[in-house]
Design a protein around this nucleic acid. Sequence first.
RNA 1: GCGGGCGUGAUGGAAUGGUAGACAUACCAGACUUAAAAUCUGUUGGGCCUUGUGCCCGUGUGGGUUCGAGUCCCACCGCCCGCACCA
Length: 853
Amino acid sequence: MSQYTPAEIEARWQKAWEKNETFKAMRDASKPKYYVLEMFPYPSGRIHMGHVRNYTMGDVIARYKISTGHNVLHPMGWDAFGMPAENAAMAIGGHPKDWTYGNIDDMRSQMKPLGLSIDWSREFATCDPEYYGQQQALFLDFLQAGLVYRKNAIVNWDPVDMTVLANEQVEAGRGWRSGALVERRELTQWFFKISEHSDELLEALDSLDNWPAKVKLMQANWIGKSRGLQFAFSTVGAPDGHDRIEVYTTRPDTLLGASFVGISPDHPLAKLLEKDNPDLAAFCAECRKGGTTEEAIETAEKLGFDTGITVRHPFDTAHELPVYIANFILMDYGTGAIFGCPAHDERDFEFATKYELPIISTYLPSEESSDELDAAFVPPKTDKVFYNRGFAGEQWQTGNEAIDAAIAFCEENGVGQGVTKFRLRDWGLSRQRYWGCPIPVVHCDGCGVVPEKKENLPIELPYDVDFSTPGNPLDRHPTWRDCPCPSCGKPAKRETDTMDTFVDSSWYFARFTAPHADTPTYMEDAAYWMNVDQYIGGVEHAILHLLYARFFARAMQMTGHLPESAIEPFDALFTQGMVTHAIYQTPKQDGRPTYHYPEEVELRDGKAFLKESDQEVEIIPSAKMSKSKNNVVDPLNIISNYGADTARWFVLSDSPPERDVEWTASGAEAAFKHLNRVWNICNRIGEMNKTAQGEGDEDLLRAMHKTIHDVTMGVESFGFNAAIAKLYAFTATLQKSKAGHSTQRAAIMTLAQLMAPMTPHLAEDIWSHQDGEGLIVNAPWPQAEEKMLVDDTITMPIQINGKRRAEINVPADLSKEEVEKIALAHEAVIRTLDGATPKKVIVVPGRIVNVVA
RNA sequence: GCGGGCGUGAUGGAAUGGUAGACAUACCAGACUUAAAAUCUGUUGGGCCUUGUGCCCGUGUGGGUUCGAGUCCCACCGCCCGCACCA
């Protein structure tokens, strides 16, 4: 044993784990189970540092749980359907299937050298017919249970390529390939009834004690429960069948401030008027330009069109308000119609100013305030305000009180009903694309839309497809659509829409419990392994993926695919930050920067220079790794230069896991140096005289037990960076220690165990060199002895008026009174007080003394 | 536009409301070396002077609560993320 050679060590121990089937998960009722899962990757073809960080964190937890006696399930799979495969087929030829499976092979071979504790026997890809066939079975069960239905929905339409575009494919309002202005268009699509579960999904958030509060808050806001008033305005001059316009408002207390009614361009009334009013039709067409994202709609310039129709105010039928079609009103939320109160809504204020509509206040900051507003007055609903045009409740009340009073008043007077609404919309799952799970239904001229028979599943994607033109190749396939109607047996046509890839990722965690089952799940396995005890992934999934998965767990429970106990599938959630890297750039003549690879740049005195020309380079710190910015660090290079343990150690060491971490070459080097140091200490201890006595055994043992305690806390609370800092400190202590051999051996073996979740290969090697029993991965986690953690004397700082002036060493169990006496007798305290009598002395036992003068 | 988050030395960051800057990087100095690398040791928030067991300032900005605030509250500024067909 001489030199630290990670390449050799890592291969050896990975082989040992594989031979022992160390990570193969099998049901075992005698042990507590622990299911740790990282969000599975999209097979882009290359692993990146973000993957390394994500899977290393999961691996630390998994290995720690193994050593604390748990039966651990730690699987891996591939979120393999999606647009990039089709884009690649269009851009460079080839087939999405070949591209995807090729990428999976590449990524698996890049991932394995990391030495993750994964049970690879459970691996699957969502594009395996074995998986998506079971997904089709789920779909059919959901359909039968009434959890799926069809309705019209709006998509981005590229009028040149004649194809549906994803939001991602819309760039500044134009199609990414054709450059044509994108339009909004209606299509009949499949939906999951997630909105029916809004209240339940919201209420259950409270039970998720080990989820980040911010994720729960984001989900709660997304579901968007609101209590409001629904009522109808009666119209004047509207076409037949539209003598009323239903509106929904969360601020009924501002009803007397209404100055117009707005309806969505997709409102039935707007669509009717469109038919014989060319100007109005042109306006609606204008509104339908641009993308379908909420952001695009909300940030677009507010536009309105006066329909000429008016409505009567419910409290004063002589008062008529104009009806506008407005581009910022969503047909999906509420009733697709609102009343505008410019005085108390910024958007309505902007609209009213533009179209010269009256601005009528209903409440003011005080009785004396002018009701001539030059901006919307929008105080928090919890603030007490003065209602100058209130109609229910007190004159002085909070917004919330006024809203409740207004709803009660309107209900009593037959004007409308209090209604609870949710912002959450049903989940549209249809995609007009090839590389996804086919929706297993058949369109029959006689029978309509008919579910496929389960015995015909999986409905497999055809391989012979053509990507030379845009659109869905399934539509153009000569024969794939043809099939007998499952109901009447006559010739019929398959549905060509495929499922949103979010469907694939909404139940994969359940499939991992029985990945090769011939039904979506096996109850016995699901009951044993579910829930996921620790789920780890990016915060970008905080809303959609996690909400959909929570819905799926409920739907699977309703259709008998998951036990009731699994309707909240993730017990604990952790959202980790990104791995970033500096960008090195030099200006080009056209003003755009040239980006340089880190390898091309030399760092001196905090500045960067091109190695080739010595030209100074601008450093942009900490940007998301991106191919186009040339600031991607390939984990494979790091592993081949330093080994996987160094890469793992570094991604955990520098930043708290929930925050972004910046990859730096010097940081990676520091990690490597540290592992070498630990290796050398192990070497040195191995060569010590086994019987020699030393000095400071007690001190080393105390430091060891403190480190056990701190690292254990760190690992359990995702404080990996803090745990690593403690390991650095203990390594330094051990390095300098003059303790005897047996104590030092105990220390290095404990150090190896504490490092094992992070640097498992090095830990195994040290363990075997110190003649540890079996594999370190199976060794029980070290326990800190309570009595070794407490010191006899402690140092207490003394503050005078909150500023530190001195410190005293006192026995740890000294009484408050004694501490106070010693503190006041301290020379620096006497000097600073300068004869004054302290007003108060605060002694926080074991912490601090504060003298108030 | 709406929703969420973050802001501490030259840098990444540490700090149950209790000594701000742990640990690491970078820099500087020293040991070892013919030299370099590697390794090891030490210094480093800013300012002031009377160089001390010293004083003042200091966690984006401005207020507040508290014996005590990086931490809690309010307002503002800046940056980042999500917004339903990217995964």
